[in-house]
Amino acid sequence: MQTRLTINGQDLSREVAPATLLVELLRDELGLTGTHIGCDTSQCGACNVLIDGVAVKSCTLLAVQADGKAVTTIEGLATGDTLHPMQAAFREAHGLQCGFCTPGMVMAGIEIVRRRGPNVDAETIAHDLEGNLCRCTGYMNIIKAIEAGARMMGETANA
């Protein structure tokens, strides 16, 4: 089925088999392997991407369902060599160990700021990460990273 998407700001029009998951299109056909497949059962959040700015689990969405929409993956966040504030915060706060869950966590962090604003507190962040699993960190540095990233996004917005 002919499908038109904007992926990380670039228009894309191509034939996509209806049974192709969005995450499969991204990884297998477009080589955007930053979006990970963890559980493939919509539990772990490693596959989170933004669709028109809203976080969804790309393992539970058909590529054809995203027709006409703008998809943002982890590869699309940085501006040149300048990391997105949420990415920079994960590095600063050491919000990762093995890194497998990290792209989904960064997307979840951006989603939390979208819904809760840049002054979101740690307790709310911890609660709102219920759809993301990390098997290394115990979550504490992830929460710190998202809190710091949220503040930085607020400052960037006000700058």
Partner: peptide, 9 residues
């Protein structure tokens, strides 16, 4: 219901 990403869909 579910989690934030699930509730978006």
């Amino acid at each position: 219901i579910g989690d934030p990403q699930v509730r978006n869909r």
